[in-house]
Simulated scan of single mutants.
Amino acid sequence: MTVDRRSFRRESEDQRRESLILAALELMSEGGPAAATVRAIAERAGTTPGLIRHYFQSKDQLTRDAYRWMMDRMTTDSQSASATASSPEAALAALIRSSLQPPVMDGTRVRLWAGFLHMVQDDPAMREVHMATYTRYRDLLQSLIQRLPGKGNPGVARGLAIACNAVIDGLWLEGGTLPDSFAPREIEQIGLSAISAILGTDLTPFAKDQDA
């Protein structure tokens, strides 16, 4: 991850805060959570430790916000691919494909996720972030599944979304960790085939960038 080092005087409050989060994520991706000290983050962002304390109550709060930012960004990146699809099947297939290709499926993000997941076990506040970001993506899946013919029942769609999310998570982890072990687009095709079987709806015709 590369941060645009613009002058803080020209940035909004939200941009300054995001710059600090991006600096923290860069350091974590390079050396793990221990590398993202307040001083190192300030140096990477081109600012002072005092500004970090202005935007975040503590280093732990910055870490939680960085986790939320990363997970929300992945969901937003995945969701944007389905926005212009012309059918429910195409929209769901686009979400699956984008979730299983760069920039969402990325080795750096997998390493960061693994480090954050360790913290989820020990920090109740981090667990809340994990639950919120997981639920956001799962609910997105559910909303797209409910648009499919015969899948409008919310309870049924919820169970299907949980199962589909588990498939996507597993493939995302493998593809991001061992990208050279798979042929181009193989992970996407496996995801579409597996989820088609779960749903009883063939999504494989949408294996390429099309929405017809």
Rank of each mutant, 00 (worst) to 15 (best):
E188K: 10
I187E: 08
I190V: 12
A94M: 10
H54L: 15
T63D: 03
C164R: 01
P124G: 02
R158V: 03
T177E: 09
G115E: 15
R111G: 13
T2N: 04
A157T: 11
Q146R: 15
T75R: 08
T76P: 02
M105F: 11
A23D: 08
H54V: 14
M74L: 15
L117I: 05
Y67T: 04
T48Q: 04
L22Y: 03
Q61D: 15
A90V: 06
V3K: 09
N153F: 08
M105R: 10
T204D: 03
F8A: 07
H130T: 13
N165S: 13
A94E: 09
A132Q: 06
D180C: 05
I187N: 02
G175F: 02
T135D: 11
S98H: 13
T76V: 11
A125K: 09
V110I: 15
W69V: 06
D14C: 02
S12K: 10
D202Q: 04
L62M: 02
R109Q: 11
S143N: 10
T47H: 02
P184G: 10
Q189S: 02
A94L: 10
A91F: 08
P102Y: 04
D123E: 03
G46N: 13
L148G: 01
D106T: 05
R185I: 04
A34E: 15
I41W: 00
E89P: 07
D122R: 14
G159M: 07
L148D: 01
E26F: 02
A90G: 13
S78R: 07
H130W: 12
T75P: 04
I187F: 11
Q210P: 03
R127E: 05
E128R: 14
D72I: 02
A24I: 00
M1T: 07
R5F: 02
P205L: 02
A40Q: 06
I145T: 07
Q142V: 09
D65P: 00
G32S: 10
I96Y: 03
S99D: 01
I52G: 00
Y55V: 00
A42Y: 07
L95I: 10
K151N: 11
Y137A: 15
T135E: 06
V104R: 12
C164E: 03
P33M: 05
S29P: 07
S7R: 13
S86P: 01
A83S: 11
E188C: 13
A93N: 00
A42H: 09
D139F: 03
E11L: 12
Q61V: 15
A81Q: 04
D106C: 12
Y67V: 07
D211S: 15
E18R: 06
P49R: 01
P88V: 09
L178R: 12
A114C: 05
H118T: 08
M28F: 11
E188R: 03
M131L: 07
Q57L: 12
E128A: 15
P49W: 00
A34M: 10
L141M: 12
K208L: 12
G159D: 05
Y67F: 14
E30P: 08
R127L: 10
A23E: 04
W69Q: 08
I198D: 06
